[in-house]
């Protein structure tokens, strides 16, 4: 049973990790805590649901399209909120507030449109499970882990193998120096939000398949935020590590301590970790950034 709980924990943690990385890259480049990430998570699930249900598109195609929409919406959010604030030289706290407002606005619109109902995709993404001795791993979990790993590999390919990736990394070290070298900050920031939105969209579309589609799905962004804090805000590897850790802590405390106070245990442990290591577990990695 312990092995099964471990599998459960990794399956949950890998979802948190995927969401946390999208959250971490924006922080990495801009030093901004971006809660509008929650809006892209919710949109990732709802667009896949709307496209597959009302336009009757195949589910896989709907999910791909919804990820694209989430990415574009994320870039749009940057354009209409962060961009003007940045041009006016406003402190970043304003963007923090704006991002939280956008998140709540999108959630409110989704509640209105969906009449607050819980629903699900017209069909299951993938049926069946893999059985090894007493341990059962749903095929969906394996697929999701695969997609999560592929997405993260693709992200690092973009960051390390492309010109824009190089520009993003330059900005994350020193945006002023990067600007002096002729790097266009608007393009870099827009691309970063697009990437974050794509990751949020992938996370949302998969969460919709794994659990269900409901308006508060975007609240997962708070788990992503905690995962980043534990792992070391801004560190991509730390975010993955933090996501897995929170997933495991939640699962183990649910299973072996008491599920009703599991959130208290999880957050209590987070406080302890932050007291002992305020820079996060992967604190060293923060220094080298990406």
């Amino acid at each position: 049973m312990f092995v099964q709980q471990l599998v459960n924990g990794i399956s949950l943690g890998s979802m948190y990790a995927l969401l946390a990385v999208g959250f971490a890259i924006v922080y990495n480049i801009l030093g901004i805590v971006n809660f509008s990430h929650g809006a892209t998570i919710a949109l990732g699930a709802y667009c896949a649901y709307w496209l597959s249900t009302y336009l009757r598109l195949p589910l896989e195609l709907s999910m791909v399209l919804s990820v694209t929409i989430a990415g574009l919406v994320s870039a749009l959010i940057e354009r209409i909120t962060l961009h003007p604030l940045r041009r006016k030289g406003q402190p970043q706290i304003f963007f923090f507030i704006a991002s939280l407002t956008v998140f709540n606005l999108v959630t409110a619109i989704i509640i209105y449109v969906s009449k607050a109902n819980i629903t699900s995709y017209p069909r299951t993404l993938i049926y069946g499970s893999i059985r090894m001795a007493n341990v059962i791993v749903p095929k969906l979990d394996v697929l999701m882990l695969g997609i999560a790993v592929l997405s993260l590999l693709a992200l690092s390919a973009v960051l390390y193998k492309t010109k824009i990736g190089l520009a993003i990394r330059c900005c994350s070290y020193d945006s002023r120096a990067a600007q002096l070298m002729g790097i266009n900050p608007d393009l870099v920031i827009g691309t970063t939000f697009l990437l974050a939105g794509l990751l949020g969209g992938i996370g949302g579309a998969l969460l919709g398949a794994k659990y269900a589609v409901y308006p508060e799905l975007g609240d997962m962004v708070y788990r992503a935020f905690f995962a980043c804090m534990v792992g070391g805000l801004g560190s991509l590897t730390g975010a993955i590590f933090g996501g897995l850790l929170i997933g495991l802590i939640e699962t183990i405390s649910n299973a072996y301590i008491n599920a009703a106070i599991s959130p208290a245990i999880t957050f209590g442990l987070l406080v302890v970790i932050l007291l002992v290591r305020p820079q996060g577990i992967a604190g060293k990695l923060v220094e080298d950034k990406i």
Partner: peptide
Amino acid sequence: FVEYAAGTVDYRAHLTQIKA
């Protein structure tokens, strides 16, 4: 007899325990 906190989304830990 498993209790959970409101807002829980992932019940695999609880259900694995029940299944045992």
